[in-house]
């Protein structure tokens, strides 16, 4: 137990050191003024505000909406995939066609986004249907499992 405590103490010290190195690199390589530091801090805080204040509440609301569905778990997985695919697609959809370099973002991103969401929808619907069929078969014997 004592060696574990020593290891944890070491980890904390090493971690603080690496954090310090990161801050040093930022200061050393960009020679930031107070405004530059404030900008980075604002963006760091902004990332948390958008995530904790908008994204997670939206996810929790979606969770409440599907809470009573007999296929809640399947819907949750489908929504997770669709959501992550959309987050990754979004910058490309918004940015496509804006670069002078034709090899950057060369694909039809809105169409491809539609395709991946469509596939996710079809897979989610199929698995939901199969799950419902199975639980209907089992419902005579036991509790309905979502």
């Amino acid at each position: 137990m004592r060696s574990l405590t020593a290891l944890r103490t070491l980890l904390v010290l090493l971690g603080l050191g690496l954090c310090g190195f990161g801050v040093f690199q930022f200061v050393d390589r960009t020679a930031p003024g107070p405004d530059d530091v404030a900008e980075v801090l604002e963006w760091l805080a902004g990332a948390v505000v958008v995530h904790d204040g908008l994204l997670v509440p939206a996810v929790l609301a979606a969770g409440v909406l599907i809470a009573n569905s007999p296929v809640r778990r399947v819907l949750r997985s489908g929504l997770l995939s669709a959501g992550c695919l959309s987050l990754i697609a979004l910058p490309m959809v918004l940015r496509a066609g804006k670069s002078a370099n034709a090899t950057v973002l060369p694909l039809s991103y809105p169409l491809n986004w539609g395709i991946v969401i469509g596939v996710t929808l079809v897979v989610t619907a199929s698995v939901s249907w199969a799950t419902l069929q199975r639980s209907r078969r089992l419902s005579g014997r036991g509790k309905l499992k979502s």
Binding site: L14, G15, Q25, F26, R29
Partner: peptide, 17 residues
């Protein structure tokens, strides 16, 4: 680059805690 070090450092602290 700088944030990468801050992440790995604060991750080690988190793991220790």
């Amino acid at each position: 680059w700088a944030l990468a070090w801050v992440i790995i450092g604060s991750l080690l602290v988190h793991l220790a805690v």
